[in-house]
Each structure stands twice: as C-alpha cells, then as structure tokens.
C-alpha cells in the first residue's frame, strides 16, 4: 500500500477480458432458454394429464348424481359419495392424530433436546434426527404393514376409519416433525433471547412467542403432508379399506336403524354415539378410483377419470389454503 506503485495500465488495457463478457452473456441467454423450455415441457405434460382426465371424465363430472350416489354395479349410476365422505373422515382423524404428536415432537427436539446439558440426550437427538429424515422417505406401503400390525392386529380396531386415519397419521408424522423443526429454526434467536431476558420460562417462550411466530410455516407443512395423505392408496389397501360401500359413516347422534326381529323391517333403534363414526367401515377416493380402473367393464374408466379430477381439485384447494396461510402469517410477522 505504502509507496509501492501498482501497474494499473496492464489491467486497463486488457481487452481480452472485455471480449469474454459478450461470450458469457451469450451463455447466460442460452441457458435461460434451455431452462425455460424444460419448465414448459414439465408443466405441459402435467397439464395434458389433467386435461386428459377431464376429457375422459366429463360425462360424469357435471352430473349431480355422480356426487350424491353410492358405488353401483352400473357405471353410469355409480358415484363417489361414500368415497368422498370417507376421505374427509379419514383425513380428519389423520390431522387430529398427527398434528399434536408431530408438533410436540418437533418442539421437543428443536427447543429442549438440542440445548440439553446431558450428552446422552444430545446423541440420542442426533440419532433420532437422522432417522426421522429417513422415515419421511420410507415407502408408504411399509406404513400400511405397520398400521395393519399395530392398529388392526394389536389394538383390534378393525377395518375402521380410525385405523385408516391413524395409519396415514404415522405416514405423515415424520414430515410434520421435520417441517415443525424447520419452522422453529427460522425463528430468530434474538426473539428467544428477548423472551428469556424478560424472565419468561422456556415453555412461556415457546407458547407465547415461538409457536405464534412459526405457526404459518408449521401449518403449511401440515397441509402439504395432508394433501399427500389424501392421495395415498397403498397403505389403506394393506389395512383393509373396502371398495364397495353403500353407506356413510354414522354422524354423531344420527338415528340408528336395525331390522325388526319379527317383521325384518328396518326400524329406528336409538342414536349413534359421538364416536361411532370412527369404527365404521369406509372407502376413500383413491381406493375407489383403483377399484374402477381395475374393472373389466371399460365404462368405469369414466368414473375413475372423473374421480381423479375431483381428487386433483381437492389437493389444489388444500395447497391454495397452504399458500394463503403462508402469505397471511408472513404479512403479520416480518423480521
């Protein structure tokens, strides 16, 4: 710096370097075109697929009876009522089962175990961390076997909405744990320190500040994983979803009918309890589609395509809700 003179003329006169700018710009433009064309290709294939579904299923999509009918041996009369309602009930159980457990596990791993003073806990945490990430990638049919063994065989819950919901619940659990941890990680440490500094306990810090600040990202993760669970077929086949169901799970406190012992006619026999729907048989949208596609009668393909469009729309609605929530909470909280 002091006294030493730099030979600036050599740098200024280097025309070679300026020439290379135009070459690099050319590559820039070229690559952006390549990337764009692949993007269009990918999107086009997807859109074509959905469009094909729509065209195939158009005969039933716009008829109201498709949505209000149970499955039937005749393709034109078969509808998705029991499958659609079954999907909603099963997802309800999944959400109620997986959110509390997943979020609590994420909070423990991120906020408590990581700062534990005991090395054994920290080693265990690292071990669990690696394995949770692996669990998120385990094929879904393996979870089906797990659900079969635990819920159906051990707890004797049968072919019920509860078995299906909890099986899908353990399927999405790793994803919820991982997204919860990521959401908690993104809360700035200055916020935690500020809270500790006002004398808040760890739980108060988590409940009053960290969870409200990260709830948007947690919900996004939950919704994305739930919309994945809605489309799952394999684990539900394993735990015994039915394919032909001409009844709905009983709503709480709805009237229950039973055959009269003398006449054999159905008569009112009291009310269903609050939780009877949990133990009802069920079918879900992807299972219903799977059944229709596999039938020898090609007319059922129309039903399958129409059900496919409904499933795609359902996922679309859920994902839009996730995006909306993310924007809503981001706007409220900016760092």
């Amino acid at each position: 710096m002091q006294g030493e003179e730099l030979d600036l003329s050599a740098i200024v006169k280097d025309v070679q370097m300026r020439k290379s700018i135009s070459i690099r710009k050319f590559w820039d433009v070229l690559f952006s075109f390549v990337a764009l064309s692949f993007l269009i290709l990918g999107l086009a294939i997807l859109l074509l697929l959905i469009f094909q579904l729509f065209v195939d299923g158009r005969g039933l999509l716009f008829s109201w009876s498709f949505y209000t009918s149970f499955p039937a041996p005749n393709a034109a009369e078969a509808g998705i009522l029991s499958a659609f309602v079954g999907s909603l009930f099963v997802i309800c159980v999944t959400v109620l089962f997986a959110i509390p457990i997943g979020v609590a596990a994420g909070v423990y791993l991120e906020e408590y175990a990581k700062s534990s003073s005991s090395p054994a806990v920290r080693i265990l945490t690292d071990f669990i961390e690696i394995n949770i990430t692996n669990l998120a990638g385990v094929p879904s049919i393996v979870y089906g076997l797990l659900g079969l063994e635990i819920f159906k065989e051990t707890f004797k819950l049968g072919n019920s909405v509860l078995t299906a919901g909890m099986t899908l619940g353990i399927l999405v659990l790793p994803v919820i744990v991982v997204t919860t941890r990521e959401a908690l990680k993104s809360v700035p440490s200055t916020l935690k320190e500020g809270s500790i500094a006002i004398g808040a306990s760890k739980w108060q810090t988590i409940w009053d500040l960290i969870l409200p600040a990260s709830i948007g990202s947690i919900l996004t993760g939950v919704i994305v994983s739930v919309s994945r669970a809605i489309g799952e077929t394999a684990p539900l086949i394993t735990v015994g979803a039915l394919t032909f169901i001409a009844f709905l799970p009983p709503l709480p406190f709805s009237d229950r009918f039973a055959p009269d012992p003398q006449t054999g006619e159905l008569v009112r026999a009291g009310q269903y309890g609050l939780f009877d729907w949990l133990f009802s048989g069920y079918t879900v949208m992807p299972i219903q589609m799977f059944d229709w596609v596999g039938r020898p009668n090609p007319e059922f393909r129309v039903n399958a395509a129409a059900a496919g469009v409904v499933l795609v729309l359902l996922t679309l609605v859920l994902n839009s809700a996730a995006i909306f929530l993310r924007i809503y909470f981001r706007r409220r909280i900016k760092w």
Binding site: P188, T190, L191, E193, G194, S195, A197, I198, G199, L209, P212, A213, R332, I333, K334, W335
Partner: peptide
C-alpha cells in the same frame, strides 16, 4: 427478572 437486558439490535416481539 432482576437483571434486565437490552440488545444490540432492537428485538421487539412480533
């Protein structure tokens, strides 16, 4: 509780 702290960068709660 007895010793308050004010940080380098203002960190109001959101």
């Amino acid at each position: 509780r007895r010793v308050g702290m004010v940080f380098q960068r203002p960190n109001p709660f959101p």
